[in-house]
């Protein structure tokens, strides 16, 4: 195992890139759960939809059109889901929600197969991001650096909105105690709706961003779902800090596990999750103590 520093830098960047992709997905899911106590297993399907929208839009108007419009389109789907299903499921127990969204996975999976077919789609990386950059002494694909930068930018923006603005304070109050927040005159229901839409848009964005890296297939949503759930359960539900910590832990354990102990890599992350659940059943940084 004699690798030079460049090798480890490369692996660290790979880990960081995976973490950021997962962060974009998990932040939406975790805040939706923290605020609404709603378990949306179909979040991964929204990510897949984002990738498909991006692929279709990119075929028409180039990569950037897909990049900017896919999140909007997925947020539109989110609005439909919210008014049709989720609003009515708000008062149900976690099991009913898990099942309804599990059914939704089936439905969305087959709908994407009907609309886009079973074959994998591909998107080209835009010219400006297609090369390689020398970064910290290693050559690294520009597009992956772009994902890392995007993830960090979104993290910063969300940290600012949640921590420094009035709507952020309202969301935090809602997560902490929704009944009390409602008593203080906050329209919690509308807050839920906004957060849900933003969460969906972020899922769509991560789909659009991931599309050039992975091939766009109907089951990509199912594949990403488990890692996303692991991230939010390790990190603790409902908090930004938990989402970023969980994503980083997952990304680094997965990437370095694959390098150092390929035999154990996939088991390692589940063992870590089990350990976290045993020691701290509510995750590392839950929104509520």
């Amino acid at each position: 195992m004699a690798h030079d520093l460049g090798f480890w830098t490369l692996q660290a960047l790979n880990a960081l890139q995976l973490s950021m992709l997962l962060f974009l997905l998990s932040i939406g899911l975790t805040v939706i759960f923290g605020l609404m106590h709603f378990v949306n297993l179909a979040h991964g399907s929204l990510y897949a939809l984002g990738a498909y929208f991006a692929a279709s839009l990119a075929a028409v108007g180039g990569y950037w059109m897909g990049f900017f419009l896919a999140p909007v389109a997925v947020a539109g789907v989110g609005i439909l889901l919210y008014s049709g299903l989720i609003k009515r499921m708000r008062k149900s127990g976690p099991m009913a929600q898990v099942l309804v969204t599990f059914g939704l996975i089936f439905v969305l999976l087959d709908l994407t197969r009907i609309v886009w077919g079973d074959l994998a789609l591909a998107i080209d990386v835009p010219a400006i991001l297609s090369g390689r950059l020398t970064f910290l002494g290693v050559e690294y694909p520009t597009y992956r650096l772009f994902i890392i930068a995007l993830g960090l930018a979104i993290f910063a923006a969300l940290a600012f909105v949640l921590g420094r603005t009035q709507i952020g304070a309202m969301i935090r109050a809602g997560v902490d105690n929704d009944a009390m927040a409602a008593c203080l005159g906050i329209n919690v229901e509308r807050l839920f709706f906004i957060v849900f839409c933003v969460g969906c848009a972020l899922a769509g964005l991560s789909g659009a961003v991931a599309a050039p890296l992975l091939s766009v297939t109907p089951d990509m949503g199912l594949q990403i779902l488990i890692p996303t759930l692991i991230v939010i359960v390790i990190g603790g539900l409902g908090s930004l800090k938990g989402a970023i910590a969980g994503s980083l832990i997952y990304g680094f354990v997965q990437t370095f596990g694959a390098v150092l102990a390929p035999q154990l890599a996939s088991v390692l992350i589940y063992a870590l999750l089990a350990a976290v659940l045993v020691i701290k059943p509510v995750g590392l940084f839950p929104a509520k103590g």
Partner: peptide, 11 residues
């Protein structure tokens, strides 16, 4: 597309 029907039924 039988998953579609099963999913809708489940919902």
């Amino acid at each position: 597309y039988w998953h579609l029907v099963v999913g809708a039924l489940l919902i």
